[in-house]
């Protein structure tokens, strides 16, 4: 496939990118390109200009400061998946990053690009919601931080303004909790038919608290509050996890996605199965 023509600008800094965005209405930001270029090739996106932010040095990398894990927007998924810091502080994120696309895709696709695109079948949004991550944004109106739960608004829709750029993701260090991601990949695209992230804090074999988020089957990820309440204070065994996971249906609302591979009914039925799998894996890491 062959993209339509566009103008190309290379941003030297976040500020430069912001300036270019305001100068070129309708322009799209280009990072790794693994969400955008497929759309350009199919001519489903025909932007007048691309602003390449891929070379802005300080947007990439993983660091831990005090109790915060910070991941730069340009950090490729492969780096997240392989990072010992991420594995220690946010294991579910490492799980998910390691299941995006395939190795070559993970080498180029970036965290910032992925979440700004907000594909409902993407893996990271649900994980960031469960981990209660905050998303750093820079724009003409200044810097701001948005929680993941408030960032993902709907199908490919985020809280990001026209002239704003995602700079990083921050996650509260989770050495005391266990987290995991359970995914039902589509056999062709390998996107998530369902992806469930769970974060469990345990007192021995008892769940002190849990955060569960579902992705893949909804326009935007949701926290499974009924499940979270049901498992809180319960023993982390198969019976109580299964019972709590069964509440997932109450958290899904009525916008469940379906396609020829997996209908909405089927995805709804699978939600408790994957919630239980994610909780079980997270619990094992929490102990």
């Amino acid at each position: 496939m062959y993209p339509a023509d566009f103008a190309y600008y290379r941003a030297s800094s976040v500020q430069d990118a912001g300036r270019l965005l305001s100068e070129h209405p309708g322009a799209k930001l280009l990072a790794g390109g693994h969400s955008l270029i497929p759309l350009l090739k199919l001519r489903l996106a025909v932007p007048p200009a691309l602003i390449d932010v891929g070379r802005i040095a300080d947007l990439s990398g993983i660091s831990v400061a005090s109790d915060r894990l910070r991941i730069g927007a340009l950090t490729p998924h492969a780096e997240v998946a392989a990072s010992s810091e991420v594995a220690t502080h946010a294991a579910a994120l490492a799980d998910a990053a390691g299941q995006i696309g395939d190795p070559a895709v993970r080498n180029r696709g970036t965290v910032g690009g992925n979440i700004a695109h907000a594909d409902p079948a993407s893996d990271l949004p649900a994980v960031l919601c469960a981990l209660d991550a905050s998303i750093g944004i820079v724009g003409a109106g200044g810097d701001r931080t948005v929680s993941a739960g408030e960032f993902f608004l709907g199908m490919m829709t985020t809280a990001l303004g026209e002239d704003e750029i995602v700079t990083h993701v921050e996650i509260h260090s989770g050495q005391e909790h266990g987290s995991a991601y359970a995914k039902f990949p589509h056999p062709a695209s390998r996107f998530a038919v369902i992806g469930v992230a769970a974060v469990v804090t345990a007192d021995g074999d008892t769940c002190r608290s849990a955060a569960v988020a579902l992705g893949g089957l909804l326009p935007a990820p949701v926290r499974a509050s009924h499940v979270e309440q049901a498992i809180g204070g319960q023993p982390l065994n198969e019976a109580s996890i299964t019972e709590a996971a069964a509440r997932a249906g109450d958290d899904l609302g009525d916008e469940i996605l379906g396609d020829v591979f997996a209908s909405a009914d089927y995805r709804q039925a699978m939600a408790p199965v994957y919630v239980a799998r994610a909780l079980t894996a997270a619990a094992a890491r929490a102990r």
Partner: peptide, 13 residues
């Protein structure tokens, strides 16, 4: 040194 899919990369990148 890193494997990428060259169909999903612009030459300018």
């Amino acid at each position: 040194g890193v494997a990428v899919k060259s169909c999903t990369c612009l030459a300018v990148q």
